[in-house]
Nucleic acid binder design. Structure first.
Length: 428
RNA sequence: GUGGCCUUAGCUCAACCGGCAGAGCAGCGGACUGUGGAUCCGCAGGUUACGGGUUCGACCCCCGUAGGCCACCCCA
């Protein structure tokens, strides 16, 4: 047994898995470009305060899942690994005065996030997200545009049966009153509440609606609904979002009990779920509107909306639904030689071909030719270049490993021949 | 953070009631000195996750720890 292993909740993405992730990243980048988003990078860690203020101190993400870094010195500021991208992205928006850019500003980030919670399949301490944010447009058309973007991502990635859950959780005008009536309702029923729920009543009453406790079902069903308490503006916003989604043909289901775990959300809230995986309480992605967040992080009042899609969970969903894993591109050719010891010539020929932009492997272990060809076959190389005595006349053998044919080719023509073959066989 | 199930070679798994830790695949080599995925033969690979206990004797029973999975909590 190895004495060292990847830390709990992390894993090595072996080449095959990395290829799957790369494919998703490529789809995300392609979509982002098509929808007018500009990709950027933000640090993997921020001042802890960015998350505490931005996400909310009472949220689980900050309270128990924040991956805090040990301070280097006593007076250094506190840092934490990013548990999501939105807070850092908004911090950057404010820091760089992006409110002076033409509005709205559409930004995207792809990369790893970190949460210190207990690992499970599809839940890791380091996981990958695609994040897209629109700042400076109060919607509702951009809400629908963004939701459609996520929807399209799952379609292009090949995940079947994804459903959009949609809700509005109100804004500063109507949410306080709703919260009050909700709190009042549950407080009246406090004696029958389980311990955990009683605690949530004080910290974040909205999340009582999210409870999976069986004893809560009837109580939740009878609880006041946010949709009945929305102010006129929020109600109009919500129905306009739905109208735009209808026009785009994006199927969705209104989920009155859908609330989000982060404090900054207002109005539109949505999650992407895979039907057939309702048992697992694992969203494929989610997002919402956060009209107060920019101001909260020190900027001028700017509306915003965004989503985060969990790429690991998409990979898992694809695997579970039996979608073939992506195959890495095989090498076009492997350079082999009759003289096992002559690594100099093999390496020079390989270098020549690589200089011409061709993807070739070269056999450098001093093994006999049959072994070299065996390896080439196992790697699914299309061609083998065989170097032998004919090199004295400036020729090499070019063997087509798929067809089983071979012919003599002048070394000076080799790159051109391979390039032409690559083109006609759609090789990389 | 709480509870349940699990952990034997790189991978998938055997090992009777507590009695010498084994196979397939993958790797390396040979059969085969300039021609490939097959076949046959061989080699290597283990502190049975780790630490303790019970026992003449522990992969097997007991305790602890770590890791994985599942259900909560919560989210991606």
């Amino acid at each position: 047994m190895p004495s060292y292993r990847a830390p709990r909740g992390t894993r090595d993405l072996l080449p095959e898995a990395r290829a799957g992730l790369s494919r998703l990243e490529a789809i995300a980048r392609s979509l982002a470009a098509r929808y007018g988003y500009r990709e950027m990078e933000i640090p993997l860690f921020e001042q802890t305060a960015v998350f505490e203020r931005g996400i909310g101190e009472a949220t689980d993400v900050v309270e128990k899942e924040l991956f805090r870094l040990a301070p280097r010195t006593e007076d250094s500021e506190a840092w934490a690994l990013r548990p999501e991208a939105t807070a850092g992205l908004v911090r950057a928006f404010v820091q760089h005065g992006m409110h002076t850019l033409p509005q709205p500003v559409k930004l995207t980030v792809v990369g790893p996030m970190f949460r210190y919670d207990r690992p499970q399949a599809g839940r890791y301490r380091q996981f990958w997200q695609w994040d897209a944010e629109v700042l400076g447009d109060q919607g509702p058309a951009v809400d629908a545009e963004l939701i459609e973007l996520g929807w399209r991502f799952y379609n292009e990635a090949g995940v079947s049966g994804v459903q959009v859950l949609l809700n509005s959780i109100g804004d500063a005008a109507c949410r306080p009153a709703y919260l009050e009536s909700l709190t009042e309702y549950f407080r009246a029923n406090a004696p029958v509440l389980p311990e955990l729920e009683r605690r949530r009543l004080e910290t974040n009453p909205l999340r009582l609606l999210d409870s999976k406790d069986p004893s809560m079902v009837a109580l939740i069903a009878a609880a006041p609904k946010i949709s009945e308490c929305l102010c006129a503006d929020c109600a109009a916003h919500f129905s306009a979002v739905k109208a735009h989604l209808d026009a785009l043909g994006v199927p969705y289901r209104v989920a009155p009990m859908l609330v989000r775990g982060l404090d900054y959300y207002t109005r539109t809230a949505f999650e992407y779920y895979r039907s057939g995986a309702e048992g697992q309480q694992q969203a494929l992605g989610g997002g919402g509107r956060y009209d107060g967040l920019v101001e909260l992080l020190g900027g001028r009042a700017t509306p915003g909306i965004g989503f985060a899609l969990g790429l690991d969970r998409v990979l898992l969903a694809l695997e579970e639904s039996g979608v073939e894993a992506v195959r890495e591109a095989p090498p076009l050719a492997v350079v082999t030689g009759a003289d096992p010891a002559d690594t100099v010539t093999r390496l020079r020929v390989a270098s020549l071909l690589r200089g011409e932009g061709l993807a070739v492997r070269v056999e450098l272990a001093p093994r006999k030719l049959s072994r070299q060809l065996e390896t080439a076959s196992k790697e699914h190389a299309h061609f083998a270049v065989i170097i032998g005595d004919e090199l004295a006349e400036g020729n090499v053998q070019l063997k087509d490993l798929e067809a089983g044919t071979q012919r003599l080719v002048p070394l000076s023509d080799l790159a051109r021949e391979l390039a032409r073959a690559a083109k006609s066989h759609h090789h990389g």
